[in-house]
């Protein structure tokens, strides 16, 4: 399979005092026909990376190939073949859905009939409605229709479902899955791990401008050593990490900073039925009282926290 996107040693530094290193040496390969997700907290460098791939920002250094072309040699060829949806573009309020999509269609030499693009995002009933009358989810679907109307081989979506209600998010996921099922390539950014797990064949986790892990969601979860997570909270500091590590099948131990006198711990374990009795026995012999305990399947969120030591949304990391 050939690559739709190939990135090597990508660096983007914004001049200033101090200079901001938004992207610090990212490498990526996105294959034709897959949905690839860039995951990470706000400010991790996801949007900067995406905008470089979209030709909107020049990289400071590194190589970028999109659909076998480079932005320096064939910008028109790339633009004709990609569709994009930016974060927070405000389309003209007083144009109708059909007028907006037709406007975008007019920029491309080849593409879909505007009504066909509207049908792809199931906005037919709103075709004659002004943009100002649309809900947030409908606007986002309109933005995707504008990205699809040029019949692109590659679709870029920057935080496509941020701020949407659950139903709107699911509708948009359907649109993206439909597009992908026609053999096309999607690259998206998100900070929702469930979205990445639902949509993406492969993901790259980005933090502070570098890729800290990449692979299929299942691979990444296996990489942290267990598919199961045991979360428990105590009323005072519990057993030392070494003791927790020594429990059967425990792979990683994470202690959260104490909050309101509650001490939280997360263990990733391969076999909860062996780890759990041993954990309870250990806690019984300590002075700490158990305040809460849950077990669950590991998610990409756990991968992120394990790798970076901080949460996705409470990240202090403002790399850009």
């Amino acid at each position: 399979m050939s690559d739709a996107i190939r990135v090597r040693d990508l660096v983007k530094t914004y001049p200033g005092r101090p200079a901001v290193e938004a992207v610090r040496g990212i490498a990526l390969d996105v294959r034709v026909g897959e949905c690839f997700g860039l995951l990470g907290p706000n400010g991790a460098g996801k949007t900067t990376t995406l905008e470089i791939l979209e030709g909107l920002t020049d990289p400071t250094a590194g190589e970028v190939e999109v659909l076998g072309r480079t932005w320096r040699r064939d910008p028109a060829g790339i633009r004709e073949r990609i569709g994009i949806s930016l974060q927070e573009t405000r389309l003209a309020d007083k144009l109708t859905v059909r007028e907006t999509v037709t406007l975008f269609r007019s920029f491309y030499a080849d593409g879909l009939d505007p009504d066909a693009a509207i049908a792809l995002v199931t906005l037919q009933e709103k075709a004659r409605a002004h943009v100002v009358k649309l809900s947030g989810g409908q606007r986002q679907r309109l933005a995707v229709a504008c990205a699809l109307v040029g019949d692109p081989e590659l679709l870029f979506l920057d935080e496509p479902t941020t701020g949407l209600d659950p139903q709107s998010r699911r509708q948009l996921w359907d649109v993206i899955n439909d597009y992908k099922s026609r053999g096309r390539t999607v690259m998206l950014t998100t900070h929702y791990m469930d979205e990445a797990e639902r949509l993406c064949d492969r993901v790259a986790i980005v933090d502070h401008g570098t890729v800290i892990a990449s692979g299929t969601p299942a691979e990444l979860i296996l990489q942290i050593g267990g598919e199961h997570i045991i979360d428990f909270t105590l009323d005072r500091p519990g057993p030392p990490a070494d003791a927790l590590h020594a429990l059967p099948t425990v792979r990683t131990v994470r202690a959260d900073p104490p909050r309101d006198g509650v001490h939280g711990y997360s263990l990733s374990v391969a076999e909860p039925h062996r780890a759990l009795p041993a954990l309870l026995a250990l806690l019984q012999s300590s002075a700490a009282q158990l305040a809460g305990l849950t077990t669950r399947t590991a998610t990409l969120e756990d991968v992120f926290v394990t790798l970076t030591g901080h949460g996705l949304r409470d990240a202090e990391g403002t790399a850009s």
């Binding site: 979209e54 030709g55 909107l56 028109a76 633009r79 004709e80 990609i82 994009i84 930016l86 927070e88 573009t89 405000r90 389309l91 003209a92 975008f104 920029f107 491309y108 030499a109 504008c146 040029g150």
Partner: peptide, 13 residues
């Protein structure tokens, strides 16, 4: 301000 210029720029317009 509405980032529409940027959105247009990303097309072959």
């Amino acid at each position: 301000v509405r980032k529409l210029l940027k959105r247009f720029l990303a097309t072959p317009m």
